[in-house]
C-alpha cells in the first residue's frame, strides 16, 4: 500500500463521518435519537468486529481485562454521551451546524492531554484554538434554523402504542 492509498483511505473515512450526521438527520424524521444511537452502534459493532477478525485476530483473542476496562471507560464517554448527544445535536441544530461544533472534539482531547499529562501547549495549538473559537462563534451567531421536520409526534406515537 502506498502513500496515495493512505490518502484515499482517509478520504473514505472523512466521507463516512460526514455522511453519518446527514443520514442520522434523515432517519430522525421518524425515529428518536436514542433508537438511532442503538441501531448505529449494533450495526457498527458487527462491521468493525468482522474487520477486527480479518486484521487483528491475535489482539481480538488475547485481549486483557485491563484493556477491556479502559475500553469500557471509552465506551461510556463516547457513546451514551458522545454519539447520543451528537444525534440530539443533529436533530435540534441540523447536521451541518452540529457536525461543525462536534468537530472541536480533538481540541478537547488536546486540552485534557495538556491538563492531565503535562503536555506542552505550543504556539500552533494556541493559533488553532483561537481559529476554532472564532469558527464556533460564527456558527453560534448564525440565525436559528428550522429544526428537523419530524413526521411523528411523540404524543401521537404514545397514543398509538397505548
Amino acid at each position: 500500500m502506498s502513500y496515495l492509498d493512505g490518502v484515499i483511505l482517509a478520504i473514505i473515512s472523512t466521507v463516512g463521518f460526514g455522511a453519518t450526521a446527514v443520514l442520522a438527520q434523515s432517519g430522525m424524521q421518524h425515529v428518536k435519537p436514542a433508537s438511532i444511537t442503538i441501531i448505529s452502534l449494533v450495526v457498527g459493532s458487527i462491521i468493525v468486529f468482522i474487520v477486527a477478525f480479518i486484521l487483528e485476530m491475535d489482539e481480538l483473542t488475547s485481549i486483557s481485562i485491563i484493556a477491556l476496562l479502559f475500553i469500557l471507560l471509552n465506551a461510556v464517554l463516547s457513546y451514551p454521551i458522545g454519539r447520543l448527544f451528537n444525534f440530539i445535536g443533529v436533530k435540534y441544530a441540523g447536521a451541518s451546524r452540529a457536525s461543525s461544533v462536534i468537530g472541536i472534539a480533538p481540541l478537547i482531547t488536546t486540552g485534557l492531554a495538556v491538563w492531565l499529562t503535562d503536555e506542552k501547549l505550543t504556539f500552533t495549538i494556541l493559533i488553532g484554538t483561537i481559529l476554532i473559537l472564532i469558527g464556533i462563534t460564527l456558527i453560534l451567531s448564525d440565525r436559528p434554523i428550522r429544526t428537523t421536520i419530524n413526521n411523528f409526534n411523540d404524543d401521537n406515537q404514545r397514543n398509538i402504542v397505548d
Binding site: 471507560l73 448527544f85 435540534y92 441540523g94 452540529a98 472534539a105 482531547t109
Partner: peptide
C-alpha cells in the same frame, strides 16, 4: 431548539474528546 442542539453538540464533543484519552 437551535441552542438545545448546539449545547448537545458541545456535550457530545466533550464526550468524544475525553473518550479519546482512554
Amino acid at each position: 431548539n437551535s441552542w438545545i442542539g448546539i449545547t448537545a453538540a458541545i456535550i457530545s464533543a466533550l464526550g468524544y474528546g475525553s473518550g479519546a484519552i482512554a
